[in-house]
Amino acid sequence: MANKNTLSYEFVKGLWDQNPILKQVLGTCPTLAVTVSALNGIAMALATTFVLTFSSLIISIVRKIIPNQVRIASYIVIIATFVTIVDYVMKAAFPDLSKALGPYIPLIVVNCIILGRAEAFASKNSPIRSVLDALGMGAGFLLALFILGSIRELLGSRTILGYQILPDFYTPWLVMILPAGAFITLGLLFGLVNLYNLSKESKKKSEIIKQYLEQNQQDKINLAEEN
């Protein structure tokens, strides 16, 4: 079990333990919307990570100067500023991706992950930890988006990242590209994660019960020997 106070844990925890989508159920709007293909998912995750990292950095640096009552308003302005920057840069340098992701780039402003991390972490921790936390959360977000995007792209268009994987005779499941497919796939993904967690928990429980029973047996033997 990783030492929870090391710097590296601040990064790693975002990948699984506190994965923003799969564990904390944050940021589901863009997750469902842009994962029609793996590439779109990756692009969205990178854009979000950019905003997340820089906002966390700035908020952490100025956290002691901002009075409590105006902190939410300040965070919002800072986040919205970085989102605008990302939006303009994408429109200028990557116009095709910008069109594919559409209105979901500006919606990064209300991505609960960013405000959530700002409130829960960046406002209370040093810049270095905040940046690592942000990068970790971003990486976890990227992982989840890539997985969801790949599944939907594979089953819906036979390709992953544009490379055809499934043979031609496989008829694509159009529903995967539509909203219904997004909901259902994400739901099943969550179900899988839960299944894994539940089985881990029940394994732990049976371990504890086994130990208790063994100890019980041992106590009985000791008692018998004494008599």
């Binding site: 300040s74 500023t81 920057i85 303009y88």
Partner: peptide
């Protein structure tokens, strides 16, 4: 003061990007 400063920095950087 804090809100105004943040507002000004935001406005200026955004207009530069635009």
């Amino acid at each position: 003061i804090v809100l105004t400063v943040i507002g000004i920095i935001s406005g200026v950087s955004l207009s530069e990007i635009a």
